[in-house]
């Protein structure tokens, strides 16, 4: 019987199959290497073009028509103000909604609608949120165009579903035994959630929030819709002043004919990427540090 496996035809066939196996594995590694190569080239070109322009004048200046005088501070401040508005609105709302859906929501059609709604909002193209912001905040409510307030509101609507989803997962990961134990010593359901579940879920919620905020920080399209593309030579001093944000500054500079702006664009990209990497790094750190297996 074992002859079948000994004859030369079969041996050749097995050799062929093993070669195919090696090719397939190499293909998989190749796919990853290719993707990472693309990333490396992208980063390399941005560093090569931009590092030369990263000096104090660039970091502390605002937009200007002259490439050598233009800086990134105005846009960075706009980004900061916008992010503050986004965080202040989306974090509490997102966490409260997550608590409700995970801990208290009855199972009915209404709640199903809320869930479908949230899952879809997380996947709706960001430019649609821009259209919403334009139609509601600017055209209907008459809020100030180009302002961090409207930008932050728009991005908050976009970020909230992300926070809700990660918040729910974090809350779900808290073992039921902790709830039963707390209920057993006479805590009310609301106390159980706020005293016991929420503190344990917080690292997970924060991780999700940081990731959502990082996404919002890199967002351009919705802010184009609400007019945050104004040429702003002085940094905004409040959330109602016209302002730009970092990604928008990159977009605006990328359109300039003057060669000097290539350096500015790349330098601004480096600044933005540093912030994003820091945020993602923080998220990963938090996740690893507090990752608990019950």
């Amino acid at each position: 019987m074992s002859n079948t496996w000994k004859n030369p035809d079969m041996a050749r066939r097995i050799a062929r199959r093993n070669a195919a196996e090696r090719r397939f594995k190499a293909l998989g590694l190749g796919a990853i290497v290719l993707s990472l190569l693309f990333l490396a080239v992208l980063l390399f070109i941005m560093l090569k073009n931009g590092l030369g322009g990263l000096d104090w004048a660039f970091l502390s200046g605002s937009d200007a028509t002259d490439a050598s005088a233009a800086g990134v501070w105005g846009a960075a401040k706009g980004s900061f103000l916008t992010m503050v508005v986004t965080l202040v609105l989306s974090f509490p709302m997102g966490v409260l909604a997550a608590i409700y859906l995970e801990e208290f929501a009855p199972r009915n059609r209404w709640v199903d609608w809320v869930e479908v709604s949230i899952n879809n909002l997380a996947a709706v193209p960001s430019i649609i949120f821009g259209l919403l912001g334009l139609a509601v905040f600017i055209n209907t409510l008459g809020m100030a165009r180009s302002s961090p307030l409207v930008g932050g509101l728009t991005l908050a609507l976009m970020t909230m579903p992300v926070i809700v989803i990660s918040g729910r997962n974090a809350i779900k990961a808290v073992p039921p035994s902790i709830r039963t134990a707390a209920l057993g010593v006479g805590a009310s359901p609301v106390q159980v959630v706020f005293h016991h579940v929420l503190p344990l879920a917080l690292p997970g919620i924060l991780t999700g929030t940081i990731i959502g905020m990082a996404r919002a920080l890199g967002e351009t399209a919705p802010l184009l819709m609400i007019g945050m593309r104004a040429f702003v030579a002085t940094p905004a001093s409040g959330i109602n002043d016209p302002s730009s944000v970092l990604p928008m500054q990159i977009f605006l500079w990328s359109d300039e004919i003057d060669r000097g702006f290539v350096q500015n664009t790349s330098a601004a990209i480096i600044v933005l990427l540093v912030f994003l990497l820091a945020m993602n790094g923080l998220a990963i750190y938090l996740r690893n540090k507090f990752e608990t297996r019950w």
Binding site: I32, L42, M248, L276
Partner: peptide, 20 residues
């Protein structure tokens, strides 16, 4: 590391596409 690709803002990709 692969996920860094997903975290890069689209405006950066757009610029890279246009520039390079």
């Amino acid at each position: 590391v692969l996920e860094i690709l997903a975290g890069i803002p689209t405006v950066v990709y757009g610029y890279f596409a246009a520039l390079t």
